[in-house]
Design a protein around this nucleic acid. Structure first.
Lengths: 139, 139
DNA sequence: ATTCTTGCAAAGCATTTGCACCCTG
DNA sequence: CAGGGTGCAAATGCTTTGCAAGAAT
């Protein structure tokens, strides 16, 4: 990803172009494997210059907010436990801490068949969980 | 969930039956909405007796390990960022910190159609992300 | 000047760890 | 008395926050 493209991305999102943002964005694009904040910090420190930890976190938040980059989906709260042990999926409530179980064998078969017919080279599937995001319209 | 069932669960898993474990397990079964450790701590303190924080965490870990209860899937590390903004899914490597993107429009359509035909009462879907767990057999 | 950014260090929170004690077979 | 279980408090690790200083328009 070239400097010009990074500049363009920032401009499109309405953010000012600063050396810190350019460096952070370049780190995210360069580090392929869904980097953590720490990996981004290390990369920036090595390749560019010192950027404060707090700034990295703030900047990453800003970039996610503006839709320039994404976050790998996690519950982003504390770990939550589950009393159901059968295979099941989850419904997440947007802006809601609710998580409901979703059990549907037909869906399981559908996915199983799909991946039997659409083998992923170099990867052996163990299990598939569907994360459904949406809004609860009851209770 | 009755005391006898909880005792049976513990016994089946080869764990000793202790008041702490019974109380924690009852909390997980009673608290419906995928409780956090903190919610379990509060519940136990209110309904039963004081159990040390460290004990709750250790016990929950043990119960998950023995397959008595589950954890809601999260990356359980630090937040990870994603440079790809198109809709996509993720391949997770078991025992591997790798996360790869999986892009497949056919899968997206399949899921979309499935949920059009299988409406979830009281819930409005915004987005669907498939978490695929498995093993990378390359690199 | 006003607003947006940054640096820095302290604070916050969820979770883990180390160790002493305890109980049970 | 050996091993598993627990309590407690300190430590860890990731992330956030508050505030003062700097840069940009």
């Amino acid at each position: 990803m070239y400097r010009e493209e990074i500049h363009a991305k920032l401009q499109q999102s309405g953010l000012k172009i600063t050396p810190q943002r350019v460096a952070i964005l370049r780190a995210v694009y360069t580090l392929q494997n869904h980097p953590t904040a720490q990996q981004i910090i290390d990369f920036v420190h090595e390749r560019d210059f010192n950027v404060a930890t707090g700034t990295i976190y703030k900047t990453l938040d800003t970039l996610v907010e503006k839709g320039v980059i994404g976050k790998v989906q996690n519950t982003e709260e504390a770990t939550r436990y589950d009393s159901r042990m059968e295979h099941h999926h989850h419904l997440y409530g947007d802006g809601d801490s609710r998580i409901e179980d979703y059990v549907n064998e037909e869906l399981d078969h559908l996915l199983e068949n799909f991946f039997l017919q659409n083998n992923i080279p170099g990867y052996e599937i163990n299990s598939i969980h569907v994360h459904i995001n949406g809004r609860f319209t009851r209770e």
